Lab assay of single mutants.
Amino acid sequence: RRRVRAILPYTKVPDTDEISFLKGDMFIVHNELEDGWMWVTNLRTDEQGLIVEDLVEEVGR
């Protein structure tokens, strides 16, 4: 599965499916959606939700 790492921290918008995360958090990407959004699991918190791909970088497989 594709893995990405947060290059900046992010605080979710209330009442959305987004998740908050810290710089350096690692994610497993489950689905890539329209407009640059991805459905992921945060490996640090085990939380699932939406993040925007502009805030992450690819991690070598």
Rank of each mutant, 00 (worst) to 15 (best):
residue 1 R to Q: 05
residue 1 R to Y: 14
residue 2 R to T: 09
residue 2 R to W: 06
residue 3 R to T: 09
residue 4 V to F: 10
residue 4 V to P: 01
residue 5 R to N: 03
residue 6 A to K: 02
residue 6 A to N: 01
residue 7 I to A: 04
residue 7 I to Q: 05
residue 9 P to G: 11
residue 10 Y to L: 00
residue 11 T to W: 07
residue 11 T to E: 09
residue 11 T to V: 14
residue 13 V to F: 08
residue 15 D to A: 09
residue 16 T to W: 04
residue 16 T to I: 01
residue 16 T to P: 01
residue 16 T to H: 03
residue 17 D to T: 13
residue 17 D to P: 10
residue 17 D to W: 09
residue 18 E to D: 03
residue 18 E to I: 06
residue 18 E to H: 05
residue 19 I to E: 01
residue 19 I to R: 02
residue 19 I to H: 03
residue 19 I to S: 01
residue 20 S to T: 08
residue 20 S to D: 09
residue 20 S to C: 06
residue 20 S to G: 05
residue 22 L to S: 09
residue 22 L to P: 00
residue 23 K to A: 12
residue 23 K to M: 09
residue 24 G to R: 04
residue 24 G to P: 00
residue 25 D to E: 03
residue 25 D to T: 03
residue 25 D to C: 02
residue 26 M to Y: 13
residue 26 M to N: 13
residue 27 F to V: 01
residue 27 F to I: 02
residue 27 F to M: 09
residue 28 I to N: 10
residue 28 I to Y: 10
residue 29 V to E: 02
residue 30 H to P: 03
residue 30 H to Q: 12
residue 30 H to G: 05
residue 30 H to T: 07
residue 31 N to G: 11
residue 32 E to S: 13
residue 32 E to G: 06
residue 32 E to N: 11
residue 32 E to V: 13
residue 32 E to H: 12
residue 33 L to F: 12
residue 33 L to A: 11
residue 33 L to I: 10
residue 34 E to H: 11
residue 34 E to F: 07
residue 34 E to K: 13
residue 34 E to D: 12
residue 34 E to I: 07
residue 36 G to K: 06
residue 36 G to S: 05
residue 37 W to Y: 14
residue 37 W to G: 12
residue 38 M to A: 05
residue 38 M to C: 07
residue 38 M to H: 02
residue 38 M to N: 04
residue 39 W to H: 08
residue 39 W to K: 09
residue 40 V to P: 03
residue 40 V to W: 01
residue 41 T to W: 06
residue 41 T to L: 06
residue 41 T to S: 08
residue 41 T to E: 08
residue 45 T to A: 03
residue 45 T to G: 02
residue 45 T to V: 03
residue 46 D to M: 13
residue 46 D to G: 15
residue 47 E to D: 10
residue 47 E to C: 08
residue 49 G to Q: 00
residue 50 L to P: 05
residue 51 I to R: 03
residue 51 I to G: 03
residue 52 V to P: 15
residue 52 V to C: 14
residue 53 E to W: 08
residue 53 E to C: 10
residue 53 E to S: 14
residue 53 E to M: 14
residue 55 L to H: 15
residue 56 V to F: 00
residue 56 V to W: 02
residue 58 E to P: 14
residue 58 E to D: 13
residue 59 V to L: 11
residue 59 V to S: 09
residue 60 G to P: 13
residue 60 G to R: 09
residue 60 G to I: 06
